[in-house]
Amino acid sequence: MNVAEFTFLVWAGSLAAGFLGALTGLGGGVVLVPLLTIFFKVDLHYAIGASLVSVIATSSGSAAAYVKEGFSNIRIGMFLEIATTFGALLGAFLTAHVPARGIAVIFGVVLLYSAYVARNIRPRTAEEQPPDPLATKLKMNSSFPDTSGLRQYNVYNVPGGFGIMFGAGALSGLLGIGSGALKVVAMDQAMRIPFKVSTTTSNFMIGVTAAASAGVYLTRGYIDPALAMPVMLGVLVGSLMGTRVLVKTKTKSLRLVFSVVIVLLGIEMLLKGITGTI
């Protein structure tokens, strides 16, 4: 393949990943690294670097669309970013020391887990409980617009959520993904933050988390501009298109198809890691 063909094909593939990722809410970053390593035979480190950059593009680019809805909570986001950025630094340093096979195996597991979470998370039914003292001290309890006006919510288990966020940050730095699935698990399941608040706050956090490891990646020479260029531009255009279409279409069957794709890529990454062919 020459430069022009390679750049165009990578751009088109990234556009599809970004589009499907935004449309299904599963995030495009998680399929980029398998796409680049399995189909374009790109070295794992370059693939991770390019993916990380595109994660920042989607997170920052779609922020405007999310903010309009008025669900995200900047205090919860900023507090938890302490955990994700420290985790991301750790993950980025680990990338240099964990062998490619190990990264491929972890990647495979994370892909399978993301598909599982996407199919099994159901918004919880809120039950009334007294507010948590720590969450109150951190001013995390807030409200969001609902069909029947503003709905109040309380936040619980801050240390638990903080811990999972550290892990989500480390995976983000190690694998070059947004780890949105794990962030939503931390907020929705552990801290009992309403689902919509969790997903929009998670989108806000993804960009900051990725920026924390991007610096390390750049210094290490993992970010190749000629490869990151088509990936970033493709994902950005694809995800912006995806968020536009999102409101108009029913995405249930598409979600299923994309989950199947994620599972297949996860199995392929696992196999490649186990057999050492990455």
Partner: peptide, 26 residues
């Protein structure tokens, strides 16, 4: 990208092996 693609569109690319970016781009 316009400069890059215009300069040598027919050159070969190979990202199979990792050899960190030049110091200047880091």
């Amino acid at each position: 990208a316009v400069l890059y693609l215009g300069a040598h569109p027919r050159a070969h690319v190979d990202y199979r092996t990792f050899h960190a970016e030049p110091e200047q781009l880091r």
